[in-house]
Design a protein around this nucleic acid. Sequence first.
DNA 1: ACCTGAACACCGTTCAAGT
DNA 2: ACCTGAACACCGTTCAAGT
Lengths: 234, 234
Amino acid sequence: MQRLTRPHIVAAGLRLLEREGAAGLSMRKLAGELGKAPAAVYKHVSDKRELMCLLFDEVSRRIELPDPGDDPRTAIVAATQSAHRVLEEHGWIAAGMLDGRLLGAASMRLSEFILDTLVRDGMSDAQAARVHVAIWEYLVGHLVAARAGAPGLTPCPATGADGAEDYPTVRRVAPLLAGMSDQERFAAGLRALLDGAFAQGRSRTEPPAAPQEPPTAPRQPGTDPGSDRRSPRA
Amino acid sequence: MQRLTRPHIVAAGLRLLEREGAAGLSMRKLAGELGKAPAAVYKHVSDKRELMCLLFDEVSRRIELPDPGDDPRTAIVAATQSAHRVLEEHGWIAAGMLDGRLLGAASMRLSEFILDTLVRDGMSDAQAARVHVAIWEYLVGHLVAARAGAPGLTPCPATGADGAEDYPTVRRVAPLLAGMSDQERFAAGLRALLDGAFAQGRSRTEPPAAPQEPPTAPRQPGTDPGSDRRSPRA
DNA sequence: ACCTGAACACCGTTCAAGT
DNA sequence: ACCTGAACACCGTTCAAGT
């Protein structure tokens, strides 16, 4: 009866996702939810991936950015924690994350905030880029790993990993994770990452190369790290 | 002609994955690759997920652990870098990561190594658990995010995120990432994470709570972090 | 025991045809 | 313009029946 619009589609998609999870969203069910034929959706959205982008963007809009006045570390932790809280409510995001290109306008807001805060604090553009990506990767990893169960805690059956005798430390330590909230673990890891990054940024301008090179890692010769000059506006 | 065995199935699965990627592996194609009917596979493997576990375990076996003699940080970076190198060769692992329970015997080896190294260095069991999970999450995040494209670099079309005018810092800084190798970025982020974690471990035994609480984060009252005593063997 | 054929209940996507 | 019906080329999984 109603004419189909993109906002309708996005709303129905989120409803379906909330109700049935990542596996419950299909173009066919979405059309059904809207009382239309499957093919009708394709007049408004080119792809299932485009739909996922739209949905991710809608959710990302709810990420709150704090006042950047404080300590840069504090501001970045707060912004990233907000992103973590918003995104972890939607389990399907972790699943969508890896067919790629989910990033949209709303997630760019977070990136801009983090990068700007880092550079304003005096970090070089190149170092800020590195730190920002590391933060994003840690966030993504936390979201994905939280869905999958902590490592060592929940082994796959039928691979000969009963988890017990051969791995005593895993066995002793793994239960300790149960008593910690996800939020707290995330914040602690994030602060560690930032503390380390700020310490790195203070001691050297060049990307980490010579000091404490790990023994197994082969050195790659021709990887020019590019311009590592200070930003002109800092 | 040949009788079907689990090793045959695993080998064929890896072949298919290498040839066609994550989306190219289906139970039906796998059966076809082996010259059998789809249903035949289910006599040897209960599930597609069990198959994925078997495949992940096979690949994880190739992770190399260094001599734990050196500096704990160096040893952990080397082990995790080895895991990174092994796992990033197989793009399908990122995809498989999040229907969960992929962890098996081979990935437990890495967990045991990291936890053991941390505890042997004098870290409390609880702190070691936290740091280990953070490392794992960063590794997973890096694998997933590398598949998806760096944040801010490759926005989704059709969300109004052309990436240009509203996000000047992203625009200026994003290209700098292109000149850095994945390996180097990963190692840098990992070292930052570890540096921060070791610094945290040195300054306090309790999980991070009071100092520099971010403004947006609501405090959760009843989250008992559990026993944080030293390991008896350290 | 091990395997096949056939089916069940789904997918994303396309396209001629209708209104 | 917007939508429907029907189809194409797939999925994972099950199960009676064959050898």
